[in-house]
């Protein structure tokens, strides 16, 4: 009997999950292809978006729901694809959204959004949503926005970005270039530091990397902030970072090894902070003091 109950409950949850957004069957001249979405797990996501799946897997994606709309008046080539990524947490949804540079206008949808002529991207709560139009229909953008607003209305909670972004100083921050990560696999594709993980990231860790530009001082540098689950892990990571930044390794000929890049790093409680590629050490020392002050303010 108990087993029957469990099976019934799981089946019910499954149906609810699949229909969680219950998208409109028709919107403008666009018709929903199927009421139930295609679904992809972390194991099958590669089949859908090829190597791009690695981004969302590394951030802990739980499942992806894909809906498709077709224009009733046009050929099959016209399509609106609605991808809803359940990222498990709002931090990871933030991370999925900020994996790309976000420098285009907002659509005032979700917690943060970006609109282009044929696509809309936003995150809200634990969801990362991408609506992509393929075709020439004049109403494609309006339809995309309408679908986005509908999904937005179905997600009651806004969600919070990762707490560590509050430790970033504002001056010189390129807000469109703040990236969130949970492991080194994702980070080292774009911000290569060394073959082995210099931050010793493991379950429960999270980090951000942000770009800073101070044109009047010809500065263009990166700040990494990583949050650990214990001070012991932070200390261990600091030791590894010191080693990699001090030991001269052979230049591999593409991105320079850490020992040949200007770096400044320190730890504070459960946080590790690394400044990289600055020109003037005195400038980043001021940033260091500001980060410590922001951390203390957060603690009190």
């Amino acid at each position: 009997m108990a087993m029957l109950f469990i099976i019934f409950t799981l089946a019910f949850m499954n149906i609810n999950s699949a229909n969680i957004f219950n998208l409109p069957k028709e919107i403008n001249e666009w018709k929903l292809e199927a009421n139930t979405p295609e679904r992809f797990t972390p194991e099958t996501l590669y089949d859908y978006i090829d190597g791009n799946a690695e981004v969302y897997k590394s951030l802990g994606v739980n499942e992806v729901f894909v809906y498709r709309y077709h224009n009733l008046d046009k050929s099959d080539k016209e399509e609106i694809i609605v991808d809803i990524f359940d990222m498990n947490s709002s931090s990871s949804a933030y991370g999925a959204y900020h994996n790309d540079i976000r420098d285009l206008p907002s659509a005032d949808i979700g917690a943060e959004s970006e609109i282009m002529s044929n696509s809309l991207t936003f995150w809200k709560d634990k969801y990362f949503v991408v609506i992509t139009g393929i075709g020439e229909s004049e109403n494609i953008k309006q339809t995309i926005i309408a679908i986005g607003k509908y999904i937005d209305s179905k997600i009651p909670n806004k969600g919070d970005p990762p707490h560590i972004i509050n430790l970033l100083p504002k001056e010189g921050l390129i807000s469109s270039q703040i990236h969130y990560f949970k492991n080194y696999d994702l980070l080292k594709v774009r911000f290569y530091l060394s073959e082995e993980d210099p931050f010793q990231l493991k379950d429960g860790c999270e980090g951000i990397v942000a770009r800073y530009k101070l044109p009047e001082k010809s500065e263009d540098f990166l700040i990494f902030i990583i949050s650990y689950t214990s001070e012991k892990d932070t200390t261990n990571a600091l030791s590894k970072l010191k080693e990699l930044c001090s030991v001269t390794t052979e230049d591999q000929g593409f991105t320079k090894s850490l020992s040949k890049r200007n770096s400044l790093f320190f730890s504070m409680k459960n946080y590790l902070v690394l400044f990289l590629d600055f020109k003037d050490r005195n400038i980043v020392k001021k940033y260091k003091q500001e980060i410590i002050a922001l951390s203390n303010k957060r603690s009190t």
């Binding site: 978006i49 791009n52 991808d83 540079i101 002529s117 992509t132 139009g133």
Partner: peptide, 8 residues
């Protein structure tokens, strides 16, 4: 940008 890295 994004998972499909595509915009017409």
């Amino acid at each position: 940008k994004g998972p499909h890295h595509y915009s017409k």
